[in-house]
């Protein structure tokens, strides 16, 4: 039996790497006594796999882990047990049972939604709104981008097509403090992948703003189904 769990990677744990996160789960699973399946062979390891890795420093409301169980246990029960055994900042928010031939979370992802919180002095919502507008109206947005398949070699890439949407969330927080929230929907996954850090870098360069206090949160991860974007747990 295989299940997929959705979890948060909050502020407290946003600085731990993908590898650290995996180890953290493996130990939490042992503490919670989840009947996880082990691989056979001389050095048995837990049958567990994670969705797309998150950049160090980015928090998330939508991370995914697929777990193979050796015995039947409802996702709700697994979630409840794990939530008692996971460190601060990691919380399971839902789960589904996967079909026998389900593809991995990593394989089906096509898009991700992020909110980016920034501190920008000397601007206002209206002006920022216009800046974003102008930014998106560019024909091409060229940045130096690492190519994972080519040894992370840097190559000038047009990221404009990978930006599906980018909006200021108005009236969210103290404009007086210079704090702004931007919501963006970006391509994500094996076909095309744009990291929000890269987008913010390009935006910063375009506007010349002195941006600090950047906090990025992954809000949702989607897969395409019948031409529509569906949240990963709805993609059975």
């Amino acid at each position: 039996m295989q299940i997929r769990l959705k979890f948060t990677k909050g502020e407290e744990v946003k600085y731990i790497s993908h590898l650290d996160l995996m180890r953290t789960f493996q130990r939490a699973i042992r503490r919670a006594d989840i009947p996880i399946a082990y691989s056979s062979g001389f050095n048995p390891h837990q049958e567990i796999s994670f969705g797309a890795p998150l950049a160090l420093g980015t928090s998330s409301s939508a991370e995914y882990v697929d777990i193979k169980l050796a015995k039947q246990m409802e996702p709700a029960e697994v979630s409840e047990r794990l939530n008692k055994s996971l460190p601060q900042g990691i919380r399971i928010s839902g789960g589904i049972i996967l079909s026998e031939n389900a593809k991995s979370a990593m394989a089906i992802v096509t898009h991700a939604r992020y909110t980016v919180r920034m501190l920008i002095p000397d601007t206002g919502e209206e002006r920022l709104q216009q800046d974003i507008q102008r930014f998106l109206e560019q024909k091409a947005i060229l940045v130096m981008k690492k190519q994972p398949k080519k040894d992370f070699e840097l190559k000038e890439t047009d990221i404009r097509p990978m930006i599906i949407g980018m909006k200021l969330i108005p009236g969210i927080s103290g404009e007086g403090k210079g704090e702004y929230l931007i919501n963006c929907l970006l391509q994500s996954g094996s076909k095309a992948n744009l990291k929000p850090e890269l987008l913010i870098g390009a935006f910063r360069e375009f506007t010349g703003y002195e941006v600090s206090g950047i906090r990025i949160n992954r809000e949702a991860v989607y897969a395409e189904k019948d031409g529509k974007l569906v949240e990963l747990l709805d993609h059975k």
Binding site: Y15, I16, D20, P87, G213
Partner: peptide, 18 residues
């Protein structure tokens, strides 16, 4: 927010381990 993203292995300084 400002210092940890700039250092190697920020996981050294988190303090909320299990």
């Amino acid at each position: 927010d400002e210092i940890l993203p700039r250092v190697e292995k920020p996981g050294r300084y988190i303090g909320t381990e299990w």
